[in-house]
């Protein structure tokens, strides 16, 4: 009886010591951006992590990917604090974007005219988000709305509620971008537990945020998706765009899994919210915005 009891005590002590040793290994080392390798669950029938889920960033990068203070929205006299800009820290490695001088001027002009659209030059006037355009890459990844990853053995589909945007990441069918698009052409591969995605074929009309930061049709993005826990993915992207920036630069932020019970992607079709904004100056006065039925 006593023998049994002391054996139990010893076993518990050994187990506790083991856990303590294990925990000391798992504690992140100061200054290290990622913890030691987390072993994500595998996708059915494959050796690769399962990234399925509804994910969302918590950054304020969609307002400005660089450091930014709290600011009033564009129409404070009309809507008070609604639409104001929340403060946030840069998601850009090193803090600031390495613009070419002429591109920096373009960024400033973009910001000044972010809410002006010319119906005969729709693609290159105003913030694409205000026009309900597909957000592009990387902006789509840090819009303040959820998106869903739907993983398959040969490809990964990302569906964004906002503006019905989507991305296919081809794991097998690697090819050169066959045409220029808003969300680009994505070739992906697994490097260990990291999904590495090479994105090209951009049409050059996308912005990076509401602050007028932008990219051109020479944009080349390399993304890395690394699961760092059951409910987090570290997103890292290297941005190369020799028409706009003096050198490649990096951004990173975590994506968080949406955990609410029965959470699902909801339709956020913003096109009808933009028609007066886009075409209002062309239309015959008094022939629109009459809600029917």
């Amino acid at each position: 009886m006593r023998n049994w009891f002391s054996r139990l005590i010893i076993a518990m002590a050994v187990a506790t010591a083991g856990v303590v040793v294990l925990l000391s290994f798992m504690r992140p080392v100061a200054g290290q951006t990622q913890g030691p390798a987390y072993q994500a669950p595998r996708f059915a029938g494959t050796q690769h992590p399962d990234l399925n889920g509804i994910w969302q960033t918590l950054t304020t990068a969609n307002w400005d990917i660089e450091d930014h203070s709290g600011q009033p929205g564009p129409f404070p006299a009309l809507v008070g604090a609604w639409g104001s800009q929340p403060p946030g820290q840069s998601i850009v490695e090193g803090g600031e974007l390495p613009y070419k001088p002429e591109a920096l001027e373009q960024k400033k002009a973009n910001y000044a005219k972010r809410l002006s659209v010319d119906p005969f030059n729709l693609h290159d006037s105003g913030d694409p988000e205000a026009k309900c355009y597909a957000p592009g890459v990387p902006r789509g990844m840090y819009m303040p709305y959820p998106f869903q990853i739907l993983q398959m053995p040969s490809k990964v589909l990302m569906v964004f509620g906002y503006s019905n945007a989507s991305r296919f990441i081809q794991l097998d069918n690697h090819q050169e971008a066959p045409l220029d698009t808003w969300m680009g052409w994505s070739n992906g591969k697994w490097e260990g537990d990291t999904l590495v995605v090479d994105v090209t074929g951009f049409n050059g009309h996308s912005w990076l945020d509401r602050a007028g930061n932008f990219t051109s049709d020479a944009l080349h993005v390399v993304e890395r998706y690394t699961p760092t826990g059951p409910n987090t993915i570290m997103y890292e992207a290297t941005i190369e765009d020799p028409k706009v920036f003096t050198r490649p630069w990096k951004m990173s932020f975590p994506l968080y899994r949406r955990l609410e019970k029965n959470v699902q992607l909801l339709e956020f079709r913003c096109v009808p919210f933009t028609e007066e904004f886009l075409y209002g100056t062309l239309a015959k006065p008094g022939t629109f915005t009459k809600k029917r039925s």
Partner: peptide, 22 residues
Amino acid sequence: PEYEYACHEHNVGMVNAIAGSR
């Protein structure tokens, strides 16, 4: 079919329809 379908983004037809009608 795994090309992007950007209908709204390229709806110059709407601009032409309204401008043409006017």
